[in-house]
Design a protein around this nucleic acid. Structure first.
Lengths: 166, 166
DNA sequence: CGCCAATCCTTGAAGCCTCAACCAACCATG
DNA sequence: CATGGTTGGTTGAGGCTTCAAGGATTGGCG
């Protein structure tokens, strides 16, 4: 429980410190930048977009709330608020699952699908501009590898990154 | 302006898509995890902590608001709200710069420094647990390199990552 | 000097996220 | 088939972030 026992300092090395500052800066700056871009064009956030995108890739464009939450990296509470908002906009619909009455299925509507398709090309273009245009093939590979390793420690049971279906 | 002209798809390749999902997941999950940890122990956010840490490393433990904002990856507005809160807690103080009356200097107080020193060991331990314990030396190197490349595209004029002084 | 633009910062309102509390349905047990 | 625990989801309150607007100072320029 203590910060330093005899076995080592548990402090960050200079290399680790630089890497941490870079990671923190990316995490802190990237999302707001993409948020602002999407917000200008469609009054939605990056998180909203990601929820729509995850739903669009599911069979029947529908998923249980908890599964959608996992794929959206969000708490159930956060997702619930957001899906309510998107439902109000006509882009999603909620319904009870017939097999388990506790489960709420969140489905993308036709209108939501159309909106997503309208947004996607420009959004992907922005992601490419901000991220991938500055990276070469090795960088991309490293990014995925390191990202997954960090994720494995944050949330050991993740999994959805591997389901490369659809 | 269109999503695909003759020169290529402008879409994400499978490798890029996987890397993007991993990056998005890290960016979305890491901060809240660290937030929750700090909040339990001191009722502050990760952003608050980072602001205190940046101030603590400056000469005289003070910086102009705009410089502190840059080092904290934040808008001036966000920083202003947060420094007001931290000032209310007795951890920071604001004062007008004598050389330029527009400039507000934000300084860490003794009490703030003490609080930071109390928090730092456990916080660094958590960062280590969540990030660096899963990475080897090459990962750390790659993380910094890729992170910087992304930052260069998000915010071309960054710079503070290189000022490895203090 | 006098003006205009740019810089630095603050504020209030609106929307978002988190946390805690809660409800409803399922399941395992006896 | 009752009961208690677990799972799935919602809600409201409070705090945080963003956005737009504005106030104040400085610098550039005629």
């Amino acid at each position: 429980m203590s910060e330093s026992d005899a076995s080592g300092p548990r402090w960050l090395s200079p290399e680790e410190r630089r890497a941490w500052l870079a990671l923190y800066a990316v995490a802190t700056r990237l999302t707001p930048t993409l948020d602002a871009d999407l917000f200008k064009r469609a009054r939605i956030t990056l998180f909203d977009y990601h929820v729509l995108a995850m739903a669009s890739e599911a069979p029947n464009r529908a998923l249980p709330m908890s599964e959608l939450a996992a794929r959206s990296n969000a708490s159930l509470s956060r997702l619930s608020h957001v899906v309510k908002k998107l439902e109000g906009r006509g882009w999603m619909e909620r319904s009870q699952s017939p097999v388990d009455a506790r489960v709420t299925m969140a489905a993308l509507t036709q209108e939501g699908m159309a909106a997503l398709e309208g947004l996607a090309p420009d959004h992907v273009g922005t992601v490419r501009d901000l991220v991938f245009d500055g990276l070469d093939a090795r960088d991309v590979e490293d990014l995925e590898r390191v990202g997954r390793r960090i994720l494995a420690r944050i949330e050991p049971g993740i999994g959805f990154l591997d389901e490369e279906g659809a």
